[in-house]
């Protein structure tokens, strides 16, 4: 069973690489934001799987919940930033 979880870990890490490509290369900022969101969801799942490997799921579930909440705040801040910057650009025209 441990082998199974390790393979899951490796697979999700490979998925993070795919998202990371979009964050690095992404032509627009929106691509990067979406890539960051994808990475954070994979990180949440990875945390729970790491907790399963160590046999301390209860502790790691708390952390991943905090992760998810903070990630929401970060996404909101980015969205707010983009919105206000667009308004600023419209004012300048």
């Amino acid at each position: 069973m441990k082998i199974f979880f390790l393979i899951v870990l490796i697979t999700i890490t490979l998925l993070i690489v795919v998202y990371l490509y979009r964050v690095m290369r992404g032509p627009t900022v929106f691509d990067r934001v979406l890539g960051l969101n994808g990475i954070s969801t994979k990180a949440i799942i990875l945390l729970v799987v790491i907790g399963t490997v160590y046999g301390r799921v209860d502790m790691f579930v708390d952390i991943s919940t905090g992760y998810a909440l903070i990630n929401l705040v970060g996404s909101l801040a980015i969205a707010k930033y983009l919105e206000e910057r667009r308004e600023l650009a419209n004012d300048a025209d």
Partner: peptide
């Protein structure tokens, strides 16, 4: 944004 993903990996 990339620094954000850096922090995720570091965590």
């Amino acid at each position: 944004l990339i620094l954000g993903s850096y922090s995720f990996v570091l965590a």
